[in-house]
Amino acid sequence: MSAAPLSSVTRGVALMVLAIFLFTAMDATAKGLIQRYPAPQVIWVRFAGQLLLVLLILRHHLGPVLRTRFPVLHFWRSASQFGATTFFFLSLPFIGLTEATAIADINPVLITLGAALFLGEKLGRRRIAGVVVALIGALIVIRPGAGVFTWWAVLPLLCAISYATSALLTRKIGAQESVWASMVYAALFGTIVAGIALPFVWEPIATADLWQFALIACLGTGAQLCIIRSFSITEASIVAPFAYLGIVFATFWGAVLYGQWPDRWTVIGALVIVGAGLYVWHREHRASRAPAA
Results as ranks from 00 to 15, higher is better:
T221F: 13
L215S: 12
L56A: 12
V148P: 07
A3T: 09
G174K: 04
T234E: 04
M16R: 10
F189G: 00
L257F: 14
G195T: 00
I233A: 01
L188W: 04
T266Y: 08
A270M: 07
A3N: 09
I34G: 15
F213T: 04
S288W: 11
I216N: 05
I238Q: 04
F82S: 00
I233G: 00
Y244I: 05
W281G: 07
Q81N: 13
Q212F: 14
V109Y: 00
P5T: 05
A160F: 00
A164G: 08
A100E: 07
R289N: 15
A167G: 11
W76Q: 01
A164E: 00
A167H: 09
E203Y: 15
W180L: 12
R36V: 11
W76I: 03
I142R: 03
V148L: 13
A146Y: 13
Q224C: 01
A3H: 10
L73Y: 09
P40Y: 01
E284V: 12
I273V: 13
A3R: 08
I227G: 03
A48I: 04
F75E: 06
F89W: 05
A187V: 01
A14R: 03
I136V: 15
I238K: 02
T24G: 08
A39N: 11
A175E: 15
G269Q: 12
L110D: 02
A129W: 10
A4N: 12
F47T: 06
I161L: 14
H285E: 15
S78M: 02
T170N: 01
V148A: 15
P199Y: 05
F89M: 13
S166D: 13
T112Q: 02
S237T: 07
M183P: 02
R69P: 01
C218R: 07
A28T: 08
I106S: 05
A167W: 01
G137K: 06
L119E: 10
I161R: 04
R11G: 10
L58Q: 04
K122R: 14
F213E: 08
I106T: 12
L66K: 01
G195I: 01
V274Y: 06
I273M: 14
P108K: 07
S166W: 13
T29H: 12
E284D: 11
M26Y: 08
L278M: 15
R125G: 13
L157C: 04
H282Y: 07
Q41Y: 02
G277T: 05
A270R: 03
G174Q: 02
L66P: 00
L113N: 03
S162M: 01
T234I: 04
L22N: 04
